[in-house]
Amino acid sequence: MLKLIKRLFRFVLKILFWCVVFSVAVVLLFKWIPVPVTPLMLIRNAEQTDANKKGWEHNWVSIKAISPHLQKAVICSEDQFFLSHNGFDIKAIEKAFENNKKGKRLKGASTISQQTAKNVFLWPDRSWLRKGLETYFTFLVELIWTKERIMEVYLNSIEMGPGIYGAEAAAQYWFKKSASKLSKYESAAIASILPSPLRYRANPATTYIEGRKSWIVKQMGYLGTINYSE
């Protein structure tokens, strides 16, 4: 019985070891090459019952081909401490934890780094397992990638509309132009729908989105120039 337990223990350790090796290798790979597809893209596509609407729009572009306005807009709307934290906003996590103790469901305080880790490597779910893996992958991307690369992957992978993934596809879908040409207000409009891109429209915007857009533009004025090397 003892031998069996030892063998099982060694087997589990080997699995964990190779899982770590594989995950690090994938994160290293995506440090340089575009992310071709995400789990969410596959899940959304599988959920689509209309055969005529199957598929998605996802056109990877360099961060230099994405308007600085959009980069600033998502920082202001999603994670204002993105450039200074190590992947986790501790104060926001503590606040979310306190709120969760009062309610019954997990409520996130995800940074852009965490959202990137979730979008690229994991599935959309509210569970402690997913959050644990998200923490692990967030640590890896912060360790291996630069802040600029995290932003590049984030803006090329997130859902920005029905079947729309990434800045270039979103710019074409909402404003009929390339991501590099997005104005301050167009960028803010896209950023304003990110909490629920299947529910809200960037253009034409509702009264609620117009309000969020104005707030984001104001915050962008406070942020100033983005410097990823700091």
Rank of each mutant, 00 (worst) to 15 (best):
R10E: 14
N52L: 05
E142R: 04
R212M: 04
R126L: 07
T225M: 06
N99P: 08
G55A: 11
E159Q: 11
T111S: 09
V27H: 02
S196I: 07
E152W: 11
E78R: 03
I144W: 12
R126V: 11
I90K: 15
K176Y: 05
W56A: 01
G163A: 13
A205L: 02
S23I: 12
Y200C: 05
I193P: 12
K213E: 12
P68A: 12
D50F: 04
I5E: 15
A188Q: 08
P197H: 01
V20A: 06
I158R: 04
F82K: 07
G108T: 10
T116W: 05
L40K: 08
Y222W: 12
M1D: 09
S229T: 13
L182Q: 06
F22S: 02
L194K: 07
F81C: 03
A188Y: 15
R10S: 10
Y136M: 05
W56T: 01
K6A: 12
K31F: 15
N156K: 00
A65Q: 11
Y222A: 02
E98F: 15
H85M: 04
N52F: 03
Q115W: 02
L223W: 07
L8A: 15
S77P: 14
M160F: 14
K118F: 06
I5K: 08
V24K: 09
K176I: 06
A117I: 05
L129M: 10
I193E: 08
L28G: 01
G132I: 11
R44T: 15
S180T: 00
E142N: 14
G166D: 14
Q115R: 09
Q71V: 07
M160Q: 10
I226C: 06
A205T: 03
T225V: 14
A96L: 13
F88Q: 12
V24P: 01
Y222R: 02
K131P: 13
M41W: 14
A205W: 01
N59L: 04
I158Y: 04
G55R: 07
W145Q: 01
E168M: 04
Q115C: 04
K104T: 15
T49Y: 00
F139D: 00
L198N: 13
Y200D: 13
F81D: 06
I193H: 09
S113D: 08
K102G: 03
F97N: 05
K184T: 05
N203S: 06
L8M: 14
K3T: 09
N99G: 04
S178H: 00
L194E: 09
R201K: 14
I216H: 07
K107Q: 14
V217M: 13
K118N: 12
E210T: 10
K131R: 07
K104Y: 15
H58F: 09
T138N: 07
Q48W: 04
S180P: 00
P195Q: 08
F22M: 03
E134D: 12
K53I: 02
Q115T: 09
I190V: 08
S110C: 08
I63R: 00
V141R: 01
L16A: 09
H69T: 07
N52C: 01
F17I: 09
R212H: 08
T207C: 10
F30V: 02
